[in-house]
């Protein structure tokens, strides 16, 4: 056993990279759920974003364009879900699961010509001065732009939800769609926009996997990241900043677990990998028993079908 082999600077730095895909997927789903919709299709949208972004980058040579296309592809796929749940009034749980199945099939079909290719690398942002700060520099300021964009999106989501009118409407729709409708808000439109945002974020998260973190395309490469993103939202009790904390925790456990293994520490890997989920359940219980339902932040209308009569 040699714990000194673990370099905390590098551990923290790679934790930020490992957390970014689930952070993006999670923040998108948070907005979706805030609007009162439960979309279990994150995995399907993520993997579609992964291949769309990868293919676009290979074809154009530009990772930036790749990320953009990934977001568009994720959003486009989510519109299928929006159509089903908002217009055909289908059950959200079943539609989300079907979306995942569809996305997995679609992505592997799209990806058949892209196996074994190498994408042009996404340049790292070496922020002058800041990146030279000892410890903090390498941990925080030597990453690719998407790491910062991810954090910026979390900040923007938090500010929008908390301070803007858009955020207010979104929350109103999520809390009580009938009342929101009576107030003249376009419930369906708001929800479709939220679903689209969720799809775009999931697409970005997927592309981060195929363009930066791995970087390559392999069928089924998200390997459950979309499901973790779903768990994150719950863990965060629907608060944007906590999604970030959760993403670092979930991503961190994986990185830490590998680090401990490499350092020769005998750890029961399966039992350690269970821990984030068990922690999530405990958090859920504490939140729901503690200060009453309101503190939980779970949108009251979540998962319910809205149909305006009148």
């Amino acid at each position: 056993m040699d714990l000194s082999a673990i370099n905390p600077v590098l551990l923290l730095a790679s934790l930020m990279v490992a957390a970014t895909p689930i952070l993006l997927g999670g923040i998108g789903e948070l907005v979706v759920e805030k609007s009162g919709v439960l979309n279990l299709g994150v995995e399907g949208m993520m993997i579609t974003g992964a291949i769309a972004g990868f293919a676009a980058t290979i074809e154009t040579g530009s990772p930036a364009l790749g990320f953009l296309i990934a977001a568009v592809a994720g959003a486009a796929l989510s519109m299928l879900f929006a159509l089903l749940t908002q217009y055909a009034l289908a059950n959200q749980v079943a539609s989300g699961l079907a979306l995942t199945l569809f996305g997995l099939g679609l992505s592997s079909l799209m990806g058949q010509g892209y196996v074994g290719l190498k994408p042009p690398s996404t340049p790292k942002l070496d922020i002058p001065l800041l990146s030279d700060i000892p410890f903090l520099g390498p941990v925080l300021f030597q990453h690719d732009p998407m790491v910062y964009i991810g954090i910026a999106i979390v900040a923007a989501t938090w500010a929008t939800l908390k301070y803007s009118r858009v955020g207010l409407v979104l929350r109103a729709v999520g809390e009580n769609h009938d009342a929101a409708h009576a107030l003249g808000y376009k419930v369906r439109l708001v929800r479709c926009a939220a679903i689209g945002f969720g799809g775009a974020m999931a697409g970005l998260g997927g592309a981060y996997l195929s363009l930066v973190r791995v970087p390559q395309w392999t069928e089924g490469m998200t390997a459950g990241a979309g499901w973790i993103a779903l768990a994150l939202v719950v863990f965060a009790s629907w608060k944007p900043w906590r999604v970030m904390v959760g993403a670092y925790l979930f991503g961190g456990i994986t990185v830490l677990q590998l680090n401990l293994q490499a350092a020769g520490v005998k750890i029961p890997v399966e039992y350690l990998s269970m821990s984030p989920y068990i922690i999530t359940i405990i958090v859920l219980v504490i939140m729901s028993s503690g200060r009453g339902k309101a503190a939980l932040g779970a949108p009251a209308s979540m998962g319910r079908i809205f149909h305006a009569t009148g």
Binding site: A5, I6, N7, L10, L11, S14, A18, P21, L209, R213, V214, Q216, T218, M221, T222, A223, A225, T254, V255, L258, N259, A262, A263
Partner: peptide
């Protein structure tokens, strides 16, 4: 076969 985890593992080993 889990590219993301393989990448993480390689990264960890290199870091160590």
């Amino acid at each position: 076969l889990d590219p993301a985890k393989e990448a993480d593992a390689a990264k960890v080993l290199i870091e160590q």
